[in-house]
């Protein structure tokens, strides 16, 4: 069977997700992306810098969630260790800075390469396993990374390290909150576009095919392991980028961002928005952070309603916010 024929078979098998979804999904996603852009700017214009930073946080974490969605939502690889990539990306900014190398052109590529390398090594081992074994082994690798960075006393160890000056882009001054927001927003848009292109490419079809029926893909002659590993590495690199941005946003780097609860939160952002839809993770991240911010403003016991929300969303909202809206539109 020729490669074209294989692809044609797959085309029937998998309906390509469109960039903007259908019907209400299209309207909603455009509206939300525009809101995510306009509201912070209004806040900034009114002189409140806090909500600009808050929106930057949504945007940065959305990049991480989008990258997780690539393998979780489309590839069916439930990584419970994605926070490790965020952490590695962050340390790729912090460690060179500590030694006086502050160029962003060093930090950002390094963050992506280091995260991709970690993804390659751990993915090569993890992808030999299936199901819950995969969930747990990715978690184990993240825990290893966590303890590793915790032990680096030179780089703050348990205390974390303060980033006394942000990455230097030369012509761009990202110490300015607005510039930082615009840069992250542009990178988020780029990542979304990339993921969209990937999942609709022949490569993406194979990865998605592995999710639905790996045996079938194998019988079609694909080296499914190599395809899945490649997707895993791409996702890791993208998540490393999110980490580099987070480090600059927080001005602070800590190994705490790599603990398993953080990986769980990332997973929740993806699921809440609707795994397997290109825009889902952005919904999810936005709603997650807004709930966190609003609930924690009312009570220090906000974990209680938050936990209830989590359970209810798993029990009743199949397909996340995205799915909910799709169904509401149809009925």
């Amino acid at each position: 069977m020729s490669a074209q024929k294989k692809a044609a078979n797959l085309d029937e098998y998998l309906k390509a997700p469109s960039l903007f979804g259908f019907g209400i999904g299209r309207i909603m996603t455009i509206v939300l992306m525009v809101l995510l852009f306009i509201l912070p700017l209004i806040a900034w214009y009114m002189g409140n810098k806090f909500y600009l930073d808050f929106s930057s946080r949504i945007v940065c974490l959305a990049i991480a969630a989008v990258s997780l969605n690539l393998i979780l939502g489309f590839g069916g690889m439930v990584s419970f260790g994605h926070a490790a990539f965020v952490g590695i990306g962050a340390y790729a900014v912090g460690i060179p800075s500590h030694h006086g190398y502050e160029s962003a052109w060093l930090h950002f590529p390094l963050a992506m390469i280091a995260a991709a390398f970690f993804a390659l090594v751990t993915g090569a081992i993890s992808l030999r396993t299936k199901g819950v074994y995969f969930i747990m082994i990715t978690m184990a690798f993240a825990q290893m990374a966590y303890y590793f960075f915790l032990s680096l006393e030179e780089y703050g160890g348990d205390d974390g390290m303060t980033l006394w000056s942000r990455s230097d882009f030369g012509f761009l001054n990202i110490t300015d909150k607005l510039t930082f927001f615009l840069l992250s927003y542009a990178l988020l848009a780029l990542c979304i576009y990339l993921v969209f292109r990937i999942v609709n490419s022949r490569f993406g079809m194979v990865v998605r095919g592995c999710n639905s029926n790996e045996a079938r893909m194998k019988s079609l002659g694909y080296n499914t392991y190599a395809y899945r590993l490649t997707a895993y590495v791409i996702s890791g690199a993208m998540c490393g980028l999110a980490g580099a941005l987070m480090a600059n946003l927080q001005d602070f780097i800590t190994a705490d961002t790599m603990t398993w609860t953080r990986s769980g939160e990332l997973m929740f952002m993806v699921i809440l928005g609707g795994a397997g839809s290109v825009f889902g993770p952005i919904f999810g991240t936005g709603v997650f952070l807004l709930f966190e911010e609003i609930l924690s403003a009312y009570t220090i016991y906000w974990h209680l309603p938050f936990g209830v929300l989590l359970i209810l969303s798993v029990l009743f909202i199949k397909g996340g916010v995205n799915g909910l809206i799709q169904r509401a539109w149809k009925t």
């Binding site: 409140n48 810098k49 806090f50 909500y51 930073d53 703050g156 348990d158 205390d159 974390g160 303060t162 980033l163 006394w164 927080q250 001005d251 602070f252 800590t254």
Partner: peptide, 26 residues
């Protein structure tokens, strides 16, 4: 950040933990 930027408060006290203090100092 919230106390500094949103509420515009001039003096912020507390901080039990070294790591929280170092993260908040800048």
């Amino acid at each position: 950040d919230k106390l500094v930027q949103d509420d515009d408060i001039s003096i912020i006290a507390g901080y039990i933990w070294s790591n929280v203090l170092m993260a908040s100092a800048k």
